[in-house]
Design a protein around this nucleic acid. Structure first.
Length: 346
DNA sequence: AAGACGGGGGG
DNA sequence: CCCCCAGTCTT
């Protein structure tokens, strides 16, 4: 038995009774699909009931005020869905005389309707053979077929779309699409999938290799934060400077660096001078400050970009607790500091 | 290709 | 706290 038949058999035995499964009216299916974008069934269900009750037809929705629509959407999140829903209802009524578009290419023109939603409506309402690809499909197919292509890339989408399109039951596209989503939502769940009762547990590649929890693969974008580092290079009269050892759990643990002033944005000359004068061992001393690099050096780490400036402070007195300049290379330093030391050529 | 957009639930 | 959810639109 092929994938589609097994899947549909499972679905027939396990599907939930949901209101949008008792209709093929495109207005209701559209409503349900928009509501269910990035939203679990239990959360969307009351909203579906409210919308179908308050706006039984696309004309009722189109004639409503946006405020009324948003009020009904309140609490569901992703409010652009409600605004787009309303705009598309007006478009259907005013431009299409109330007739819902009946092909994928026309349906996807509606605001708020992308590939997934257009495929769902085209298949469920018009029996078009257009496979849906949503979070459930990614999960189910990546596991059963052992696909490691990251799902949140253009390449990943194309690959899963093509596979789903190849697997879809050409006679029952609507049932297949709903079945694979129900399967992903109820059995092949993100955590603790019910592999014991899975119709594919003899062929599932992820199960046989025990890599269920590795799939699907998703590239997580590391959030890069900007930081503004000002290193203070002290040149004392007796040829010393200051290096400090970093502590704590952050970057460069236990390495050495020049005294650091971190600011929340690119700081002005006067602001830095002010802060330098607050440093303990420089208080009430005669100093002269110059900025070594007008343009910040951008040091890129995986999760942060360091906008770095080096400030030269000439101290007109001795610094007995400092380290000798000719010993500076004895200390382990981050490459950012190392590059500066090399360039500055003490 | 990467971010923004939300609120709820599971582990 | 992190991940995920019947995704789409905008940089």
């Amino acid at each position: 038995m092929n994938f589609a038949k097994q899947l549909i058999n499972w679905y027939t035995d396990n599907k939930r009774d949901l209101p949008w499964r008792n209709t093929t009216n495109p207005y209701y299916i559209w409503l349900s699909e928009i509501i269910l974008q990035q939203t679990q069934v239990v959360q969307g269900l009351p909203y579906y009931n409210a919308f179908t009750t308050n706006f039984p037809t696309v004309f009722d929705l189109a004639n409503a005020d946006e405020q009324e629509v948003l009020k009904l959407w309140q609490g569901l999140g992703y409010y652009s869905r409600a605004r787009n829903l309303h705009a598309s209802a007006k478009y259907i009524v005013n431009e299409l005389e109330g007739r819902f578009p009946d092909t994928f290419n026309e349906i996807i023109k509606l605001k708020g309707v992308g590939d997934y939603t257009a495929s769902a409506i085209a298949s469920i309402c018009f029996n078009h053979v257009t496979a849906v690809v949503d979070g459930n499909v990614y999960r189910a197919l990546s596991r059963v077929y052992g696909i490691y292509t990251p799902i949140n890339t253009g390449k990943g989408f194309k690959e899963f779309k093509a596979l789903a399109q190849q697997l879809i039951d050409k006679k029952e596209p609507a049932t297949f699409n709903q079945a694979i989503m129900e399967f992903g939502a109820r059995l092949c769940k993100p955590k603790n999938p019910d592999c014991d009762n899975c119709p594919f547990n003899t062929k599932c590649i992820a199960l046989s290799k025990a890599v269920i929890t590795d799939l699907p693969v998703k590239i997580k974008s590391v959030k890069v934060t900007k930081k503004y580092y000002n290193f203070i290079i002290i040149l004392s009269k007796d040829g010393n400077t200051i290096l400090e050892q970093r502590t704590g759990n952050g970057i460069w643990q236990n390495l050495y660096q020049f005294p650091l002033l971190e600011t929340d944005k690119d700081a002005s000359f006067s602001e830095i001078v002010k802060q330098i004068k607050l440093i303990n061992y420089l208080k009430d001393q005669s100093i002269e400050v110059s900025l070594y690099n007008e343009k910040a050096v951008i040091h890129k780490l995986s999760h942060q970009h360091l906008y770095t400036k080096f400030w030269i402070v000439t101290l007109d007195s001795a610094l007995p607790k400092g380290i000798a300049l000719d010993k500076i290379t004895d200390y382990p330093v981050p490459i950012l500091i190392g590059n500066f030391i090399e360039k500055f050529n003490f």
